[in-house]
Design a protein around this nucleic acid. Structure first.
Lengths: 190, 190
DNA sequence: CGGTCTCTTGACGGAGTTCAAAGCTAGTGG
DNA sequence: CCACTAGCTTTGAACTCCGTCAAGAGACCG
């Protein structure tokens, strides 16, 4: 049931049969259709989400009422508003499926209980979080280093599957570009 | 000797006397003058750094040979190139003191040995890293949400001590602005 | 097939950069 | 404690990348 998650955890730490049962107790699996919401602005983000299958996006709406995507999550990625999750503060984000998806979730209380019962999971999560920090550092470096055109091309080269899978205007939004400008860049670069 | 670090750790987990001795064994304390380097571009970042006293900056140089700051670290902040640290890859960053500083460092091997000996530190680091991810999410949201002017003003309101402590051109660089534009903004907003 | 998303095109404008030069400030050595 | 110098900040003019607006052409789904 938690196959992808378990495979993922086992890349970093060992996990015996009993531990798997414990995980089964705390994680819930949900299936969503395209464009369903897991979190809406103003709600407290009470869970961490792990994508078993499919693709999610996290976005907020700015003054002019258009959507700014800040994160995608596909298979084997974790996603959450960590600020809202940690402090029980209302979130400024939406989390929504981009396509039909299966998602595991664990809420605040289960999370703490799970960590108490399986302290070795602290190590797994520490590594995951550390990798996420590394990824953020890279992302911010690219944002400062590259022009918007270079940033777009770099993204297309780095994640060609994503570019195929996700509509163009969402890629534009994620990169902080207008759909019009992306269209111009596509024409220009074949 | 590790007073600030220990105080910091104790905000998140419990720590007995024996554990403190173990930490003493693995962490090294170094004092640096203003503008000394802890890491240079091309070197592998072999340590995590914890600032006991003072202030560091992390930056890279772009094509036009000017410095782009991506991170500051003052008292009780961790800093490192996590990508280089994790994979032993050459770093694209410099880490340098902004002012006279006392810094604790722990290298890759000591880090792993320390975690083996004190597994409860996994929890501390998981929480630290999770907070760092939350901070990155916030930072990226602001970068997308605010104009450069708003971004600058927001930073000044959020970190007034920093604005006093660090030269203006470094603030500009950290925010992705030119010193000229920051100068203009200052005049405009009193 | 009709309607609603999505992508493209082109004209225009402005926030923020670049360049060059002058004015300040603070740290250093004498 | 002063004077010198290197480094920091300010100014203003010219420029440009990229966003905005408006409108039309495809494409996908019920």
């Amino acid at each position: 049931m938690l196959q992808n998650l378990i495979k993922h955890i086992r890349k970093f730490i060992e996990l015996d049969d009993h531990s798997i049962e414990v995980l089964n107790k705390y994680f819930k699996k949900n299936s969503y259709k395209k464009k369903e919401f897991l979190l809406k602005e103003g709600q407290v983000c009470r869970s961490l989400y792990f994508v078993e299958q499919g693709c999610l996006r996290m976005y907020f709406t700015n003054d002019k009422m258009n959507e700014q995507i800040t994160q995608f999550a596909k298979e084997n990625w974790w996603i959450s508003d960590f600020f809202s999750f940690a402090d029980n503060k209302p979130s400024g984000y939406y989390i929504q499926t981009v396509e039909k998806s299966d998602v595991l979730s664990i809420d605040t209380l289960s999370f703490e209980a799970m960590l108490k019962e399986l302290p070795q999971m602290e190590r797994y999560l520490r590594i995951i979080m550390q990798n996420a920090v590394a990824a953020s550092q890279r992302r911010i470096k690219y944002m400062y280093e590259l022009s918007k055109e270079e940033f777009y091309l770099h993204f297309c080269n780095s994640f060609p599957e994503f570019v195929q899978r996700v509509p163009q205007y969402m890629i534009a939004s994620y990169l902080g570009l207008t759909p019009e400008y992306v269209s111009e860049l596509r024409k220009k670069n074949l």
